[in-house]
Design a protein around this nucleic acid. Structure first.
Lengths: 263, 263
DNA sequence: GTTTGATGGTTCGTTATTCGAACCGATGGT
DNA sequence: ACCATCGGTTCGAATAACGAACCATCAAAC
């Protein structure tokens, strides 16, 4: 991880080490996880701390993400209000389908879940966590994005090692490219048990102002509930919701994106 | 702004140049505003961009905050769920008082508004924007924080030039220290027209796990509506809401904080 | 009670990295 | 054709980052 990255890239890489499982990390652990020198990590942390990007807990002296990221997120929302706009759409989508709806966004060469909505209709539901890293090849959302992404982006993603989250995960690049073809035809991706067993998920890409996919809207349901009529209902509602979201954030679907056939 | 800051501090300072008025900034303008060299700014931006902290718009090549800040904010919320916890409290507070409620957090030596809730009761209401920088001496929230902050923190803040936002803004450090005494006595700060004319605002500090103030909860109303009964209602409800929030985020009020006398 | 192995934090000479004036090519208004 | 501005690039000089070694402190181990 330590090859030829600039000073700020190193600093930013420290921030990426935080996740839901480790929201507070000590100096030693950060140095170990980052592969950098302890003195380097400490200096970087000091600068990040004085910028408010991390803060130290009072008890142990572990570090955690600081309040400045909240401020920046609010400003990002002011510039590109994806979260606030998607809120209503997610709520409606989960209510209409009775299942869990969630939004994820592309960030470089990874995909992050960012927001979700549950439906109270069923006792069992697919649970989500925000800020989780999703895989492109194993999730409906990832496939939806790949299907409409640049060729070289797809090449980069598929040339990396493709881990199998379950024994249903597609890991053969050629097979995945076949699937992408069908996704392109319908405008919707479908993944059954590829990321988590027993989860049947549909996903539709959302596009930015440059007509390139910036993320995906998805509905995740237990496989046991996926009847034919439910399948139909999810697909039509999801597609409408995704094009709606694309439009509301000032994005444009590319010309080759299948228009939604009627209601 | 350019003296003796490390490389990452410079990079982070670029991020602070964004605000509601300028959510997208070009390279030249960033260079001018930061006081750094253009090549330096460009390199920093490239690193920030590959980290997802900024992104370039397709049209002009201006920069804006990137999606990574959303992910970090979600993780920060997972570690310290101030925003999600305060949501319900803000909603209730604004509903109960019929006025605008808002939350702001200390970030280094500045105070940022972060979340708010309006009440639909009146046609005229105090409008808020999130991620705005508030002054310590001119706002109720700032005074509430100062009143329970470390002495040297207060000294640092009050030794800076104190700008007068309106002609009612307190700018005399000695006078402000007097006010802080009364705030300490009641646990509530009051500011009339100090930041924006015609705005009467009440504020109560919220505390972290180390019993030090980390922000403030406030209610802002047009001065014209501030009757005696309304004054009473706001103060009691605000105080309860603030101690409630402090408790729910795992914080503790300091021993010298006036306990809420009954309901 | 001292040994051991963690931890967070600090030092300082070497060296690799950042810096910044100048330079490009493109765009656009006069 | 001109001038101004834009985003982006170059390259030698100088500065700032690096990292091995070192402290201080704590907690359990012996």
């Amino acid at each position: 991880m330590q090859t030829d990255m600039g000073t700020v890239a190193k600093a930013l890489s420290l921030l990426t080490l935080f996740n839901h499982a480790r929201t507070e990390i000590g100096l030693s652990e950060l140095t170990r996880a980052s592969g950098l020198n302890k003195a380097t990590v400490y200096r970087l942390l000091c600068e990040l701390q004085s910028g408010g990007f991390v803060e130290q807990t009072g008890s142990d002296r572990a570090y955690r993400l600081g309040p400045e990221v909240l401020r920046l997120a609010a400003l990002r929302e002011a510039a590109v209000p994806i979260l606030s706009v998607s809120r209503a759409i997610l709520d409606r989508l989960s209510a209409d389908t009775g299942e869990t709806a969630h939004l994820s966004l592309v960030r470089g060469e990874s995909l992050n879940s960012l927001s979700h909505a549950y439906s109270p209709r069923h006792a069992t539901r697919v649970m989500m966590e925000d800020a989780e890293v999703l895989s492109f090849h194993g999730t409906g959302s990832g496939l939806a994005v790949l299907a409409f992404a640049d060729d070289d982006f797809v090449d980069r993603i598929l040339s990396r090692p493709l881990v199998a989250h379950t024994d249903l995960t597609l890991t053969d690049p050629a097979r995945i490219r076949q699937v992408l073809e069908t996704v392109r035809a319908s405008g919707l991706a479908e993944a059954v048990g590829g990321f988590e067993a027993d989860v049947h998920s549909h996903a539709a890409p959302i596009f930015g102002a440059d007509q390139r996919p910036i993320g995906a809207l998805a509905v995740a349901a237990p496989v046991s509930r996926m009847t034919a009529s439910q399948w139909q209902a999810i697909r039509s509602r999801l597609k409408r919701a995704a094009t709606d979201l694309t439009q509301r954030i000032g994005g444009f679907c590319p010309p080759d994106y299948p228009r939604d056939r009627a209601a």
